[in-house]
Each structure stands twice: as structure tokens, then as C-alpha cells.
Design a binder for these strands. Structure first.
Lengths: 351, 351
DNA sequence: CTGAAAGCGCTTACAG
DNA sequence: CTGAAAGCGCTTACAG
């Protein structure tokens, strides 16, 4: 591993100490703001620190104190604006609390995730915020992060048993409620044949959103045709390709609750290619409220999940956990909010 | 600072050593893949490492060896998809090379930038990739990062003198050429009155893009009306507000080369609000090719800057620098590519 | 209020 | 091929 690189001669406590005729211990006390040290001594030391341009070596301090001042943030895909916003929120809140963010991106691969977690662990993070990659396995995660570092799961859940035993905290979106809101909204507009479009059945968030959709349909006494539950990778391209599946059943649905915004945007693209006009003769809803949702054509009705706020929240939760390692694990369900835009049109009345 | 948090009793080299009856030195040699150690000894040690679930403490190793295995990435605004993609590229390439990314987001504030750099420095990064915030000052940056840690400037340049003296590397986009391409393209479509819209004059990238625009106009023998050079914050909202400034001069321009995509999208919004139809009676170009550019209405003609590739490139450049600290500083100009879409319409012919 | 000493977990000459 | 010893830059009882 050629990952090491020699570093220039550093200015240390010893330099400062000899520079103003005190011991290293005294300088350390000044640095840590101890009230024990004499005012004049403190002033002299501080002047010397400034004069020599001293930079605190937090790694050394952490080693000695057996503490950590970093939190690892492991994310499916930073290029996804949803996770980028989340990361921005995490970093903002961690920075405010004096922690540094160790970043790791997994590209939605469980294998990469293992590698990234392993590498980050060697840097001794005080805690980990993990948005698991698809197919990520709780037991494997446990093997590489060990039972002692606090972990917060975001966005996707892992095996409940492992999560509970290890007191992993969970921050989840209110997926069931969100999908329910979207479905109810379409029903109120007059839609009767509503599909659920996109996502993989084995992802927890997809299952939860489907559940909300089904609840709303059942509550309204509407039938759910199994072929209206259409899977696709949660990407725009895949969704566009799958659009045709909506019309495999006759009569076809007049609306689709989509797994997320990427899928919804892709579906709208696919509909256009088939001569359908989302927002006119077909209604679509998304999930996430990414920036594009507002400016797409037509503007997308969706559920705002406020990823930046979620990021701040995640940071606060993990910091909480660091301060109280032995309290019960928490399961936080973040609210989501329906944002109505033009993509959710009323159905065409067919005679 | 309550940023420290006690960490659980760690498994150390000493545990492994006593666990299989060798010295710590031998275990260390095994870990570092030294050929000096006996095959059987190695096997025994490796088994013990696995058995005890040993996790390498890279911070301790770095302290002893006076090396670093991290690179700091300081970015204006992670929420901006352009920088998010850049960060994803950086993290990907750094991870491959065995480095961990220390993330810092400045929110486009020079004051925050100082704080973030200071905090990151305490974690001893081997190098820094910095995309300076607006108004960032080279001398201040120098004061807090010191003269010894390699720095790569991305996206925005700082005082040339300071940059040169400290051998800071620079990775810049070919802004002049890009803006020139966009302007020439509009000219070829028949536009004669072309504005340059958005950006702040005191940012280097804005100056360079204006320069490219002016070159193209001059080369085509077209006049540049000073009031066609319109400033705005590089955000969608500000740009939408400034749209009216285009029509302060009579005759008004029929096209605008925009500072970037965010500005271009905002301008299109502003034009729509004034009853103008970008892509029909007004042409617009952007810069960056963010994801929205492709799906906006009309789709935006712009310059692809491939931020993820740029991120990988930045990571490679800084790693180069770590390995060769004393070679001359580099100035890399990354190519940009014109992407033609419907927003760049021909002008309406007025009789 | 200040200093001498031990130790965090690792690495690296140096002996053997 | 393996081990004893010193040291990276810091902190923290413990004396004084």
C-alpha cells in the first residue's frame, strides 16, 4: 500500500514549551483551556503558539485519550442529489459539533460497502452513519464494524435481529404514510385504477411504500391488480424502459404511484415516448422531492423528505449515541410531506 | 469542546503477539507484508488476527511513521449537484488509492472556509483539495494550512503570486474556450445581439467565461453593448429575478450566454414569467451540464464539464503531488464540450 | 500553579 | 528470522 506520505517536520508541544520556558504539560493544559494555569503563563504560551504557527495534532491526542473526533458517513451514491443533500446536512451538523466527516461512497454495491467500511474503521471513527447499499447484509456489516462502534442506519433497514442486538439506531422516512398520502391524493382526484411503479421488492423502503399504497387502495375499496405492481431499478433509464408494463393489462391504470422521483421522471419520459402525456392523460407521483421535481414537465407531485434536514438529524442522533452509549437504541421515523403539482391530473373520463 | 468520546477497549498488536507467542514487532511486520517473516509464523499470526477480529489503528501508525492516509476535500456547497458529482469522483479515486476523504463544506462563505480548513488541518491531511468559496483569500488560506501541506485548487483560482510561491497545483476548466464555443454556436444560428448573463465579476471563472464570450463576439465583428453584461448570484432564484435586465436596452438581445446552468435555468424561468419562450423567441446556453439541463423545458444547450471525471482527476493530481513533493506545480486545464439542445434556437426574424 | 513520568498503538533500526 | 527498545505527539494522574 503506497498510501503513506512523509509529512514535514511538525511544530509540537515541545517546541512551544521550550520556546517559552514551561513544560509540555503546561502547554497542553493551556490548549485544553484548563483553569489550572496562571494567567500570565497562559498568555505567554498562547503568544508562542501563535508565533510558531502551532497546529494541534488531534490524532495524537485521540490516541492518548482513546477518543475519536470523526464520524464515518457511508452513502450509496454521492452523485445522487438526494444523498448529496443528506451528506451536506450531516457534514454541516457534525462540523458544528466539532467532528470531522470521513466520507465513503459505495456505488450501491454491497461488496464495495464492505471494503469502504473496513477502510474507514482503520481510521477509528467514533461512529458510523450508514445508508446501506442494496443487498447489504447485517451480519457482514457487523463483522467489519465490530460490536463496539455506534452505528446509525439511514434510509434502508437491515435484519431487525442484528440491528436490535447491536443497538443500532435507525432513522427512517415515514414511507408507509407517504405512499398512502400520494395514493389517497390520486383517489381523491378520481383515479380508480392506480399502479405502483418501480423499486425492488427486496428493499425495505420499497416494501413500505407499497404497503402504504395498498392500505390506501384497500381503505377506498379499490381493487389491486397484481400486474399493477411493477418492479424496476430505481433509476430514470430503467423506469423509462419499463413504462410499457403499465399497459400490459386492459383496462390500463390511469395513474401510478412511483417508488421515487427518479423513477417517476423516467416513467414520464417513457410515457411521452409512447404518446401519452403525463399530467394530461396519466397521473404520476414521486417520492423525495429532488430539485428536478419542481422543474420537470409537468412539475412532479411528490413527497418532500427534506434530505438536508434528515442529514442534520442523523448527525445529531449519532452524537447523542456517542454521549450516551448505553441507552436504548432509537428508531426515528421522519415525517414526509405531500407536495401537489401538475403531474397529478384528474383521469380522463372514458364513456 | 465536547467532541471527544471514549472508545471501547481495542484489540492491539500486543494482544495478537501474546495470543500466538511472538513479539509485537513480528506482528507489525506481518501486517505490513514484510518478506522477512517466516511462512509458518506469518500463518499463525494471520490466523490470530482473524480470530481476535483485529482492526489496524492507522492513526497510531501514521503518528509513528509521520505519514498521513487522508486527503481533505473542501467544497463550496455539497448540495450543488455539480460539486456532489465532483466529490463523488474525488472519493472514488482517493478510496482506490487507499486514502480516506475528510469532507468539509463551506457554504460558499470565506469565513466558514477558514474554520473548516483549520479544523481539518488538526486531523493531519496529507493534502487538500480546495474549491475556494467566493471571496476566499489566498493569504488567509496560506496562514491556516501552512506552507507544507500540498494544496490543489479546483474551479476557482486565487492570487497567482501566493499560488505560485507555495507550489499549489491548479485544476481549472477551459472556461474561455467553453464560453467561446457557446457564443460561436449562437452566432452560427443567426443571433447578433447576444448577452452574457449571470455570475459575479470578481470570480475568476466568470471573468474567464466573459472573456471567451467577448473573443467570439469580436471575432465575428459583433458589437458588445456594456449593458448586456449582466451580473447575478449564480443561483436560479437570483437569475430569475434579473431576467428583466436583458430588456433594459432597446433593441434587446435575442440570446444569452449564461454563466452556468443554474443561472440559465433561472433565466428561462424569468423569461417565461415575462411571456417570453426560451427555445422559441429567445436562445439560452448554460455551463456545466448538470442533470437537470437535459430534462428542463426546453432542454438546455450547455457545456459538459464532467464533474465526476474532474473529481477523479483532482484526486490523481494531489496523489501525484504527495509522491513528488518537490516537482514544479502544475496547472491543468480540463476540456469542456458543447452539448447542443433545444434552448439554443435561431432568432425570430423581425422585418 | 508547574513539571517529571508513564502510556495511547504503532514502527523501525539494531542486536542476536 | 525474531525480539527489546526507543519514539511519533499528545494527556493525565501524581508530586511538589
Amino acid at each position: 500500500m503506497p498510501k503513506a506520505t512523509p509529512v514535514h517536520r511538525q511544530i509540537t508541544l515541545a517546541d512551544i514549551a521550550s520556546g517559552c520556558g514551561v513544560s509540555r504539560a503546561t502547554v497542553s493544559l493551556v490548549l485544553r483551556g484548563s483553569p489550572l494555569v496562571n494567567k500570565n503563563t497562559r498568555a505567554r504560551v498562547e503568544a508562542e503558539l501563535k508565533r510558531q504557527g502551532y497546529v494541534y495534532n488531534r490524532a495524537a491526542a485521540n490516541l492518548r485519550r482513546r477518543t475519536s473526533s470523526s464520524i464515518a458517513l457511508v452513502i450509496n451514491e454521492l452523485g445522487n442529489p438526494y444523498f448529496a443533500e443528506f451528506a451536506a446536512g450531516v457534514d454541516e451538523a457534525l462540523g458544528k459539533a466539532g467532528f470531522v466527516t470521513l466520507l465513503g461512497s459505495t456505488g450501491e454495491s454491497a461488496v464495495r460497502e464492505q471494503a469502504v467500511l473496513g477502510s474507514l474503521m482503520e481510521h477509528g471513527p467514533g461512529g458510523i452513519i450508514l445508508s446501506p447499499a442494496e443487498g447489504s447484509d447485517a451480519r457482514q456489516v457487523l463483522t467489519t464494524v465490530g460490536p463496539h462502534v455506534p452505528l446509525l442506519l439511514f434510509n434502508r433497514e437491515l435484519d431487525d435481529e442484528v440491528t436490535e442486538i447491536n443497538h443500532w439506531d435507525v432513522l427512517a422516512l415515514d414511507n408507509v404514510h407517504g405512499a398512502r398520502l400520494a395514493t389517497q391524493h390520486l383517489i381523491e382526484l378520481g383515479h380508480r385504477r392506480i399502479a405502483f411503479f418501480g423499486g425492488h421488492r427486496d428493499s425495505s423502503s420499497c416494501r413500505q411504500r407499497r404497503e402504504g399504497y395498498q392500505q390506501a387502495m384497500r381503505d377506498a375499496g379499490l381493487p389491486i391488480e397484481p400486474r399493477w405492481l411493477i418492479e424496476s431499478s430505481p433509476t430514470r433509464l430503467e423506469a423509462a424502459r419499463q413504462a410499457g408494463a403499465l399497459f400490459a393489462v386492459d383496462p390500463a391504470p390511469t395513474a401510478a404511484v412511483c417508488y421515487n422521483d427518479a423513477v417517476a421522471l423516467g416513467l414520464m419520459l417513457g410515457l411521452n415516448q409512447r404518446g401519452r402525456h403525463p399530467g394530461h392523460d396519466f397521473a404520476v407521483t414521486g417520492f423525495d422531492d429532488i430539485a428536478e421535481a419542481e422543474v420537470s414537465v409537468p412539475p412532479l407531485t411528490t413527497l418532500a423528505t427534506k434530505p438536508r434536514e434528515r442529514g442534520r438529524q442523523a448527525a445529531e442522533l449519532i452524537i447523542q449515541r456517542l454521549h450516551h452509549p448505553n441507552t436504548k437504541a432509537t428508531r426515528t421515523i421522519a415525517p414526509v410531506q405531500l407536495v401537489v403539482r401538475e403531474s397529478s391530473c384528474p383521469p380522463i373520463v372514458t364513456p
